[in-house]
Amino acid sequence: MNTLFPIFVKAENLHILIVGGGYVGLEKTTALLANSPNARLTLVAPEIRDEIRELAQQYPKMELIQEPYHALFLADKDLVIVGTNDKDVNRQVQADCKNRRILVNVADTPDLCDFYLSSVVKKGDLKIAISTNGKSPTFAKRFREVLEEILPDSLQETLDNLTAIRNKLKGDFVQKMEKLNEITKVLK
């Protein structure tokens, strides 16, 4: 049973550390910046891919540190994502985060994760996060592709219209919810 509690984090209000400068580090950095381009991000690794360096030039709140991981890099960090090919480093980062009560995700190692990164469908302001409880990121990715294809691009217009309606509604919270439920009943 999937007991995960889904949340959407305002990454631009956090300082996020990514440990790993290879392909996985690139993948996690790209996903983070695609969803939250104003996120404050520090990436640390002894070697950093050129594609990551190019991203850092495009995002002023992204800092690269080309050094091996050390626990000192956790200072003032709110969230950590680990994606190295060194299992010992991955375990050390996870242990250091636990000691500091910092939430951590260790790529491809569900047992070391406090949270999983979801596959995300985006249509304007609509975001749908997909989780397989860490069992199959590939399935989540394929399902995201299906949803992206079947959800119409006009959803943003619908969301904008519903926002305008909500802002004009009179009454208390319950009355507003009842009216919005009536209006959106067509979605069933």
Rank of each mutant, 00 (worst) to 15 (best):
R100P: 10
P60M: 01
I102G: 09
C97G: 14
I102M: 08
E63I: 15
L43K: 03
K77G: 08
R40A: 13
D50G: 02
A71K: 15
L64A: 01
D50C: 01
G83Q: 11
E51A: 13
D96A: 14
D76P: 02
A56M: 06
Q92V: 00
V80C: 03
E51R: 08
K87C: 01
V104W: 08
A71F: 03
K61M: 03
D86N: 15
E54F: 06
A75R: 15
D96P: 12
V93H: 08
Q92R: 12
D88E: 13
L41Y: 11
P68A: 14
D96K: 11
L103I: 09
R53P: 01
N99E: 15
A71Q: 15
D78S: 13
I48R: 12
V44D: 02
E54P: 00
E47A: 10
P68W: 02
L41D: 10
K61C: 02
K77R: 15
Y69V: 05
L103V: 02
Q66T: 11
E47P: 00
A75I: 04
L55H: 06
R53G: 09
D88W: 06
L64R: 00
D96R: 12
V89W: 01
L103G: 06
V89A: 07
A45V: 10
V89I: 13
R53T: 11
N105C: 05
Q58L: 12
M62F: 09
A95Q: 13
M62G: 09
